[in-house]
Write a protein that binds this DNA or RNA. Sequence first.
DNA 1: AGTAATTACATACGCACCGTATGTCAATTC
DNA 2: GAATTGACATACGGTGCGTATGTAATTACT
Lengths: 196, 196
Amino acid sequence: MRKPRSQMIVETRTKLIAAARAAFGTVGYAQTSMDDLTASAGLTRGALYHHFGDKKGLLVAVITEIDAEMNAHMQAVSAKAGDPWTGFRDECTAYIELALDPEIQRIMLRDGPAVLGDPWDWPTLSECIRSMTESLTKLAETGVIAPIDPEAAARLIAGATQYAAQWIANAPEPEAISRKAIDAFNLMLDGLLARS
Amino acid sequence: MRKPRSQMIVETRTKLIAAARAAFGTVGYAQTSMDDLTASAGLTRGALYHHFGDKKGLLVAVITEIDAEMNAHMQAVSAKAGDPWTGFRDECTAYIELALDPEIQRIMLRDGPAVLGDPWDWPTLSECIRSMTESLTKLAETGVIAPIDPEAAARLIAGATQYAAQWIANAPEPEAISRKAIDAFNLMLDGLLARS
DNA sequence: AGTAATTACATACGCACCGTATGTCAATTC
DNA sequence: GAATTGACATACGGTGCGTATGTAATTACT
């Protein structure tokens, strides 16, 4: 039974990140014991601190993984649309739908910012938000929307979508609430369109 | 040196809340030691757990106090305006300006939600947000804005303003950023106005 | 191939911190 | 003025993080 070293490393990292993702996403970051977490992955805290430095390092790794998935999904959605404007709206809607996932809510929207600070300052993340900023930049250049600062718009939209998602996710009837939220959201988005 | 008991209680509660507000607002909730905090107020942890039950209880007390102040300020601002719509816009701007305070950012917008959950579910808070919902309800009834769900709009606006505030507060040149953010924000708000 | 150096983990330890249980002394109550 | 309530302080146990140290296996060197 000979295993190459590099493979072992990938396996342990994967196991730890998977366990952390499950734990952080359910009981939360602060309530997760590193002893229990590593034990559930069949390891000890030694492995953890060797690979990730500390508890925050593990959180960063988890966030990086989730963000990559979110970004890929949003890219795919916006690429599917006909024109840039609907592509952007679809992208925002996709973001809201992603944010309905309790795991994403807890890790990306609550514990993440609380532990690591403003997501816009994260070195890894903002991939999925940076893509929104790029879309807005192009929309402003081509005159589809009114000439405003793309980053400002992206920030406002990200904030609105996040709150909308949290609202929907915690609502007793997500379906009905979801429709209300998306209606209001589209109305606000239309405020950005260039006046004819 | 005779002091009535009720006065002692108020004094200690005030001292603890003030110390907590300073500590939570600077080093953060998780990084604040209850030993150090109570010591800085000239007390011990005994007083803390007697009055507030646990660490979270103290946070709730701090949040309640800050929220009352924010609410009072926003009410005053919106009452000063001429018509309801500008009153509402001023209210939103006031919220953004309040959110520039690092203490409010840290306690109300980051640590608070992380520890206590969605602010909309807080029994005490949402005073300042509930007031925004009321304003929107009236604006929708009088036909000033398009007929959308007031709570949905309030949520979206609250999210947008919060993100705008965090952006401004962390920016190297808050003045310039603030203008950009408020411009974009007003543009989005106008999207809610009834189309003529 | 055999030795040396790296490294991926486990084990052991100290320390800080939270919450509770218990004690004490002053202020009310009768 | 004796009894009781209650506002705090003190003492204790438990938990969890980070680090220092140990070990065994893989890689690198000659």
